[in-house]
Nucleic acid binder design. Sequence first.
DNA 1: ATGAGGGTTCCAGTCACGGGAAGGTCAAGG
DNA 2: CCTTGACCTTCCCGTGACTGGAACCCTCAT
Lengths: 129, 129
Amino acid sequence: MNIGDVATRTGLPAKTIRYYEEIGLIKPPRDENGYRRFRDNDVHKLNFLGRARALGFTIEDCRTLMALYEDETRASADVKKVARAHLAQIEAKIADLNAMRDTLGHLIDACAGDDRPDCPILRDLSRNP
Amino acid sequence: MNIGDVATRTGLPAKTIRYYEEIGLIKPPRDENGYRRFRDNDVHKLNFLGRARALGFTIEDCRTLMALYEDETRASADVKKVARAHLAQIEAKIADLNAMRDTLGHLIDACAGDDRPDCPILRDLSRNP
DNA sequence: ATGAGGGTTCCAGTCACGGGAAGGTCAAGG
DNA sequence: CCTTGACCTTCCCGTGACTGGAACCCTCAT
């Protein structure tokens, strides 16, 4: 299978697939003409990666998770640990964003949004401390 | 005032202040020795920028907001529009993260987290479609 | 032979900085 | 007067995870 077919199948852009090869996440062999030849296993890995990335795991997490996936003797505790650390990051990010949303929401509500220059949003941004 | 004092006052790293000058957000004059000399107005602007960045506005948004702030004839509607667009981005991001958190949370709950290799997290990541 | 539609590499850019090197400036202390 | 140490300066590279584009090769159909 060539890269275009794999891109269609996995939903990943060809550029991304080449990038994943470049950083060593997959190692498809080459045909005589230099084209990458993807085996089922490569496609499987790419699906795995796409799914892990969609859950927000970093590339390095993906590397770790793939290694665990391929290690038949893994302990599920190791997987869970990676996932929990990532969940904590997500929750921290959500908390940050919630705080921003609340502040911004209040400011927007307080702003008349008309032709006049008076604006609580700018007042807040330029407040002293 | 030199950059170190400004950094202390605004809470922004000196590197960031130099960067903001480089991209034209502030234009502090220079002393004879080449040092940046910050006036109250520059410090004020930097506080504004720090606050806007803390609310997650992009640098380009900050540029727009500062321009509006300095335009006495602005319409608050223009400010509100920028803020609302940003709020929408934040909410979209929160929605994404909430979905990740939910999925990841379920998977983590389902994972025994012991010595055995069997792991619902990896099963989900490697599932077919 | 020519064109369309694959594939390949390499380089540059994204965003908002941060790290670190190499060197100029200034105030205080010996 | 000299040195020390804390400042300041510019310049360049690296970050994460790609994306866009140029320039070029391969294959097949017309």
